[in-house]
Computed example of a mutant assay.
Amino acid sequence: MQIKKLMAGLSLAGLLLLGGCSNNKKADNDSDVKHVGVLQVVQHPSLDKAYVGFKKGLKKGGYVEGKNLKIDYQNAQNSQDNLKGMSEKLVNEKSDLILGIATPAAQSVANSTQDIPVVVTAVTDLKAAKLVDSNAKPGRNITGTTDMVSIDKQIKLLLSIVPKAKTIGVMYNAGESNSKIQGDLAIKALKKAGVKVVVKTANTTNDVQQVTETLAGKVQGIYVPTDNTFASAASIIGKVVKEKKIPLVAGSTDQVKTGGLASIGIDYESLGEQTGKMAAKILDGKAKPADMPVEKAEKLQLVVNKKMAKALGIDPNSIKAPK
C-alpha cells in the first residue's frame, strides 16, 4: 500500500514537473514573438504600398505575422491629435520596434521615445526633419529610408513634355516639411530653366480642388512633389487637369496612376521592403539604428499614364526619361 502511495506521489510530481516545463516552453515561445508598432500618417496608395513592402522585408528577414511577429498597425488619418495619441500607445505597449510611415508620423514617434528602436520610410529628408544627426550616421534610435529623388530630373521631364511653356505651377502643402523641401527645389530648377513659377499651397484635401482649378488657368504645366495631402486627393486633381488639358508631373508614381501624366519616381513597395529588411536586422540584434546609414531607393522608374496622355492629345511614346 505504501509502495502504491509512493508511486502515485512520484507520478503526480512528474506530471507537475512536466506541466511546469510545458508552461516554461510556452513562456519561451511568447518571448520569441517580436512586437512591432506601425504608425502611418494617412491612407493613400504610396504609403499603403510602403507598409505592404515593409512586411515583405520583415518576412525576408525571418519575421512572419502569426508566427514570431505581432504588428500593431495605427493610421492617424492625417490628424495631429491621432498621431500623438497613437505614438504614445505604441510606446506604452513597449514595442520592440516602431515604424513611422511619412514625415509627420516619423516625427511624432520620435517625440514619444528616445529608447525604442525606430525605422521610418517615405520621409524625404531625415536630417532636415530632425530625426537623425546625419544620414551617414544617424546617431540616435532612428534610421530608415528616404523617398527623395532627383527633383531636377522630374522638372526636366515636365519641361520636355511642354517645351514651349512659359509658366509652370507648383502645388504642395506648406505645412509638410518634406513637401516644402521638394517644392523649393522644384522652384529653383524651374527658375534656372528660365521659366516663370506660380506656387499654390493647400493645408487640407478640402482645399485641393479649388487650388488646382485656380492654378490650371494660369499655367501650361504643373508639378506636385510627394505630398500626402495632394496624394490623398489625386483623383480630384486628375479630373481638373484632364478637363483643363494641363500636363501634370508628380513626385509619386502612384499619383500618376490616379491623376497625373508622368513621373520618374519611387516604387514605394520596394522602398518599404528595404525598410523592413533594415528592421529585421535591428530585431535580430545585428545592428542599431544609430549606426545604420539612411538608405535611398534602390529602384527608380518612369511611369506614364497613357490614358491621360491621350486625353491631353500627347503621344505617350514621346515621353522619355531625361538623361
Results as ranks from 00 to 15, higher is better:
Asp291Cys: 09
Gly276Thr: 00
Gly259Cys: 04
Leu283Tyr: 09
Leu261Gly: 02
Met278Trp: 08
Gly260His: 04
Ile266Glu: 02
Gly260Leu: 01
Ala280His: 02
Gly285Val: 00
Ala262Lys: 11
Asp267Leu: 00
Pro293Ile: 06
Glu273Val: 12
Gly285Ala: 08
Ser270Met: 12
Ser263Ala: 15
Lys296His: 12
Lys277Glu: 15
Gly260Arg: 04
Thr275Asp: 13
Pro289Arg: 02
Gln274Thr: 15
Gln255Val: 09
Gly259Lys: 05
Val294Gln: 06
Glu295Trp: 00
Lys277Gln: 15
Gly265Leu: 03
Asp284Met: 07
Ser263Lys: 13
Ser270Asn: 14
Gln255Met: 15
Leu271His: 10
Pro289Cys: 06
Glu295His: 02
Lys288Arg: 15
Ile266Trp: 02
Lys296Tyr: 12
Ala287Leu: 11
Leu283Trp: 08
Glu269Asp: 07
Glu273Trp: 10
Met278Lys: 05
Asp284Ala: 10
Gln255Cys: 10
Ile266Tyr: 00
Ile282Asp: 12
Glu273Gln: 14
Gln255Ile: 11
Ile282His: 13
Lys257Pro: 01
Pro293Thr: 05
Ile282Cys: 12
Ala262Tyr: 09
Val294Pro: 01
Gln255Gly: 15
Pro293Arg: 08
Lys296Leu: 08
Ala279Ile: 04
Met292Gln: 03
Lys296Ser: 15
Met278Glu: 13
Gly259Arg: 04
Ala279Pro: 02
Ala279Arg: 03
Asp291Glu: 15
Leu261Glu: 02
Ala279Met: 07
Glu295Cys: 02
Met278Tyr: 07
Leu271Met: 13
Glu269Tyr: 06
Lys281Glu: 10
Gly260Glu: 03
Gln274Pro: 09
Glu273Phe: 12
Gly276Phe: 01
Ser263Phe: 10
Asp267Ala: 00
